[in-house]
């Protein structure tokens, strides 16, 4: 892909992200918001594909666009699916908080390396070369992301799985089992 086409695609996708975000902020019907946040995830997944982060894109598409949307919908079955407009006196503080958060993010952004820079710590650190050069001999699996996540950083991934498991237990404790299911189990 030529550099111009790559830039154009990136700008287009990021513009779509901004439009989707604004639409989510404006809409009051939460069903539409759930669908739009699914679209938002799908768009960010496309951005990740452009950045050659296929594994991340895969996760974003499956979790953000698929799972989260369904959980939102299931929640609307329990609560109201329409957002109440905030009263006027609350709008100014909310705007201030939003502007302050955005400002902090912009300040933090100036510390980021330029897009596609070759001299970032990730590129220049010796550990990168070590992984790239020796995974083939040591592990011999073509997908280096899998090698890194499951073998070199196996301890981290174990921690992640435990976090997922703990979150599941926490939801079970908070929401509990519905009474009908309990009755079915007991009978």
């Amino acid at each position: 892909m030529s550099a111009l086409a790559f830039d154009a695609l990136n700008v287009f996708l990021l513009a779509c992200l901004v439009v989707t975000g604004l639409a989510i902020a404006r809409l009051r019907g939460l069903f539409a918001v759930a669908m739009l946040s699914g679209i938002y995830s799908l768009l960010s997944a496309s951005v990740f594909v452009l950045l050659d982060a296929v594994d991340v894109a895969f996760t974003e598409a499956a979790v953000g666009a698929g799972m989260t949307t369904v959980l939102f919908l299931a929640t609307f079955g329990l609560t109201r699916s329409r957002e109440h407009a905030a009263p006027h006196q609350k709008r100014v503080p909310a705007l201030l908080v939003a502007v302050a958060c955005g400002g902090v993010l912009l300040v933090a952004l100036s510390d980021m390396p330029p897009f596609g820079a070759a001299d970032t710590p990730v590129q220049t650190d010796p550990i990168t070369e070590r992984y790239v050069e020796t995974t083939h001999e040591e592990v011999g699996i073509p997908n280096m992301v899998t090698t890194l996540l499951a073998s070199y950083r196996g301890f981290d991934t174990l921690g992640e799985v435990v976090v997922v498991f703990t979150a599941g237990i926490a939801v079970l404790m908070l929401l509990g089992r519905c009474s009908r299911e309990r009755a079915e189990d007991e009978s």
Binding site: A74, T75, L172, L175
Partner: peptide, 9 residues
């Protein structure tokens, strides 16, 4: 588990 407990309620 998440889906069952959300949808089941």
């Amino acid at each position: 588990m998440l889906f069952y407990s959300f949808a089941g309620r």
